[in-house]
Nucleic acid binder design. Structure first.
Lengths: 127, 127
DNA sequence: GTTCATTGTTAGCAAAGCTAACAGAATCTT
DNA sequence: AAGATTCTGTTAGCTTTGCTAACAATGAAC
């Protein structure tokens, strides 16, 4: 939904960057490759995204002591603040447009959406 | 959802371009500015998107006889085929991940989503 | 007729995406 | 142990998708 994008844009972070921050926030630290996989983009793309996030101070990168090829990407305090703020804005907006919907019906719809999302992640692109 | 993006990517059209094709398919011909407004991007952005679509043969541009500043953007036969194919793939995919959901519950959830979308369009970004 | 608003376009920039290729580290095979 | 293969992050080159600013032409308002 384009409207959600406009809400997100208010954070001034960038779409792909915000999405990566969300992965870190909800899923915890991970490697660059794992981020790329979760976000379904190439490693090269995620490399650029993380570079931008690091430059802006939203994430830190440290070597993975268990595998010298890898690096661990973590949210910084600033990154945590940014994703929390973005999340709050989204929730606020969604609450507003849903304010005339019956709470029970809304909860049921959310449950189904969650289910569909889990299904899509279990089998991402197959038909 | 990233998975939907991957499904859409299969058409080889490009995200913003496919979205613009959808606006034309479901809403009919319109001007470049109207497209930009509906898609919530700048006119300059939509200018680029439409350029790409025209170059690939998906849309045609003709002067608006009622206003010499404007041009009418229309789907070509190829554009219609592309958006139909993309739409069918999306539906197919969504059907697949929803196949274990009760049809009545799914219909209810879809109704609520439609309602929320209408609400978001009536008041795009206000809180 | 003049001023202001609308429309599409250009220019310059950054972000976000891809593939290909590479180097170094880790794992597998012999 | 040595060589082959895989994994990881990086660079390079390209395209697409976004933005703002500025402009010229057209249309509307005064």
């Amino acid at each position: 939904m384009r409207e959600i994008r406009r809400i997100d844009d208010r954070q001034g972070v960038g779409r792909a960057r915000l999405s990566a921050l969300a992965v870190l926030y909800f899923g915890g630290e991970c490697s660059l490759s794992q981020l790329a996989e979760t976000e379904m983009v190439s490693r090269a793309t995620m490399h650029h995204v993380v570079n931008g996030l690091e430059r802006e101070g939203y994430v830190t990168r440290t070597p993975d002591l268990k595998d010298a090829r890898r690096q661990i990407i973590r949210l910084s305090a600033e990154g945590t603040r940014a994703i929390k703020a973005a999340h709050a804005e989204r929730i606020d907006y969604l609450r507003h447009i849903a304010e005339d919907v019956d709470p029970g019906e809304l909860a049921a719809a959310v449950r189904i959406l969650d289910h569909l999302r889990n299904r899509s992640r279990a089998r991402p692109e197959q038909k």
